[in-house]
């Protein structure tokens, strides 16, 4: 059902993670959404969440991060633990880069890694499954099953491959990241598709796709603003919290070609400006890959 009102809408609240009382094992769960106005204006939401993104196959990860985390990159669970305890991330986003290998069929490892990371962390978990329609169904089923009851945020659904993610989310009680390519209409369309598939609207988080700063980020920024404005003026199909994961940020020329001494600073600055701008545009969760960016963002969001 579509819900509209002249007064404007409140952004839907989406719960991430489940505590023991809620049927999971997390020490905390988060509720995102709930805004009634533009970011930093008026009352409403709590502080945006900062997620540190890690992966299960570091060959596909930016060198500047691999250099910083060192051996952690080879132990996904430890990396996850450090993300929360050492680097201070509000939550972890686990990216199954291993599925990018040709002929991938290690589905058992997907389940196992999901379980290990859940055991190593105490906070809600975002899981980024496969990016390959042929693998989707099995990958999402396995990580969905492994995290049953934990209210994972499962990504990502796209307009031409949303059924597998949706099925896993429905079967095991997770929330879904709905990603569309930088377009307010396409974002809305995907939300409608998910709704008509049976995914409850309080389990959808919009990812409008974020380009890197200097490489089209302005499109993402404006689409986020448009999504939020449409939602606040009554469009229930866009009234979901947003997540911003500018995954290309650390691959841009400015970071790659920076003098070795500046590279880390450049990586963090690039991630920081992108993520902070996304928050100003309305993102409830920002995902970064460099541990130092987490700290910078959290400091900026205090007070």
């Amino acid at each position: 059902m579509t819900e509209q009102s002249d007064e404007g809408l409140t952004i839907r609240e989406v719960r991430l993670g489940a505590t023991r009382e809620e049927g999971g094992t997390r020490e905390v769960s988060y509720v995102i959404g709930g805004e009634r106005d533009l970011p930093f204006s008026g009352d409403g939401a709590g502080r945006p969440l900062v997620a540190l993104e890690i992966c299960d196959d570091p060959r596909f990860w930016p060198p500047v991060v691999r250099d910083y985390v060192g051996d952690l990159a080879n132990d996904t669970a430890e990396w996850a633990r450090a993300a929360e305890r050492t680097y201070g991330a509000d939550l972890v986003r686990l990216n199954f880069t291993s599925t990018k290998q040709r002929g991938f069929d290690a589905f058992d490892a997907i389940a196992a890694t999901t379980e290990e990371v859940l055991a190593a962390t105490a906070r809600p978990l975002i899981v980024e499954g496969s990016n390959e329609p042929e693998l989707d169904s099995e990958v999402f089923r396995r990580c969905g099953e492994a995290g049953e009851g934990e209210r994972l945020l499962l990504g990502t659904a796209e307009a031409d491959r949303y059924r597998s993610v949706a099925a896993a989310a429905l079967a095991y009680g997770h929330a879904v990241i709905a990603q569309s390519p930088i377009d307010v209409n396409l974002a809305k369309q995907l939300n409608i598709l998910l709704r008509e598939t049976g995914v409850p609207q309080d389990r959808i988080v919009i990812d409008p796709y974020a380009g890197a700063l200097g490489y089209g980020f302005e499109y993402s920024y404006s689409v986020m603003e448009r999504i939020r404005l449409a939602a606040l003026s009554g469009d229930a199909d866009l009234a979901m919290p947003m997540i911003c994961a500018p995954t290309d940020t650390l691959s841009v020329r400015e970071v790659r070609e920076a003098a070795p001494a500046d590279q880390e600073a450049m990586a963090v600055a690039w991630e920081f400006y992108t993520a902070y701008a996304a928050i100003v545009a309305g993102a409830s969760i920002v995902c970064v890959r460099h541990p130092l960016t987490v700290e910078r963002l959290k400091a900026a969001l205090e007070g």
Binding site: T2, D183, N185, L186, K188, Q189, I192
Partner: peptide, 15 residues
């Protein structure tokens, strides 16, 4: 282009 994208849906993105 915006209108086009929103029309690429049955019947339309904006019900």
């Amino acid at each position: 282009m915006d209108r086009y994208t929103s029309s690429c849906f049955l019947p339309h993105t904006d019900f």
